[in-house]
Amino acid sequence: MEITPAHYTVLSAALFSIGVIGVLVRRNVIIIFMAIELMLNAVNINLVAHARYLENLAGQVFVVFVIAVAAAEAAVGLGILLAFFRNKETVNIDEMNIMRW
């Protein structure tokens, strides 16, 4: 039973969908951030698997960049979250509507 790139792509798609479900269904902003990290990890699995099977290291280089962007996103996002919490005392995304309506 051989593992093909399709197996890794299916795993990646499933993990990405779990992240999408987390973003769309949960209301706690911290958990929504974690779901975004899950989606980034799904993309990374895809890139690493295809770098291995196409024998081209460019995919792994892009994973390094994705990890850098994820670190930047987490730092800025959590900074925004702390600033918001200081003003409104909540992390519920349904109450974060001061710029929406």
Binding site: I30, A74, A75, L81, L82, F85, T90
Partner: peptide
């Protein structure tokens, strides 16, 4: 970083109370 934020955010009511 996430753990620090979870600890810093001191919730007085459940985050999913309001819908």
């Amino acid at each position: 970083l996430y753990l620090f934020v979870v600890m810093l955010v001191n919730l007085k009511r459940a985050p999913e109370a309001h819908e």
